[in-house]
């Protein structure tokens, strides 16, 4: 075989060799954990959560993971996970999984019951556990809540938590009646959460109140 032929062969098979031996070791999958606040008056907002879930179902790729959990009085438990799925690598199977997921969350959100307290911290710890278990390269917790945490006396959550390498995005953070009287309460609440989340090692903290701009969920700052 002469040199020209060798070059031609190398040109032809170069990428095949690259494909066989140079796989990117990084994990490119994305895992999203959605927390839906079902406490008090915020339970009425649950319908909007379906919009976000649908958006996520339409955007996530085969191989990505998605879980939806509710936030109630004590939420550090797997029982609060409404639906979870790791989408199949094959697009056709992933689409079928997404349909089933949509049906499951739709059924839950239509019959959601309000809870007395709001354990956001516990739900976040549970979410971080789930996300770390998926081993995804990009992990996100979406909190659909007014971010007003209310715990009963026996529930302990005032300890440092770990949200290392997790993006935390608060969506549809509605203003409470008291916030309207004194907006500093609302701003202070968000600031306190940002401080806590970033202190826990989260890679990003973001607030998205405009549900028309959900594409910002996947846009890293």
């Amino acid at each position: 075989m002469n040199r020209r032929a060798l070059w031609a062969l190398l040109l032809t098979l170069g990428l095949a060799v690259a494909a066989a031996g140079c796989a990117d070791p990084r994990n490119h999958t994305h895992a999203v954990y959605v927390l839906v606040d079902t406490s008090g008056t915020y339970a009425r907002e649950a319908g909007k959560a379906q919009l976000i879930i649908n958006y996520l179902l339409g955007t996530l790729q085969p191989g990505d993971s998605l879980a939806v959990a509710r936030v109630q009085s004590r939420s550090f438990t797997e029982k609060d996970i409404i639906a979870k799925a790791m989408f199949d690598q094959r697009p056709s199977q992933a689409n079928a999984q997404k349909r089933a997921f949509r049906d499951k969350t739709d059924a839950f959100l239509r019959t959601v019951q309000g809870s007395a307290y709001t354990d956001i911290t516990g739900a976040m710890i549970q979410g971080a556990e789930f996300l770390n278990e998926t081993g995804a390269g990009k992990k996100t917790i979406l909190i659909f809540s007014d971010m007003q945490e209310e715990l009963d006396k026996s529930t302990i959550r005032n300890f440092p938590i770990s949200l290392k390498s997790i993006r935390v995005i608060a969506v549809n953070v509605t203003k409470l009646g008291t916030d309207n009287i004194d907006p500093r309460r609302y701003l202070g609440r968000l600031e306190a959460w940002q401080k806590r989340v970033e202190g826990a090692g989260a890679s990003e903290w973001k607030v998205i109140n405009d549900l028309e701009r959900l594409d910002a969920i996947f846009a890293t700052s």
């Binding site: 690259a18 494909a19 140079c22 796989a23 990117d24 990084r26 490119h28 999958t29 790729q61 085969p62 191989g63 990505d64 690598q89 094959r90 697009p91 992933a94």
Partner: peptide, 8 residues
């Protein structure tokens, strides 16, 4: 599969 990457 759609989730494997060769490069980024």
């Amino acid at each position: 599969g759609a989730g494997d990457y060769i490069t980024a």
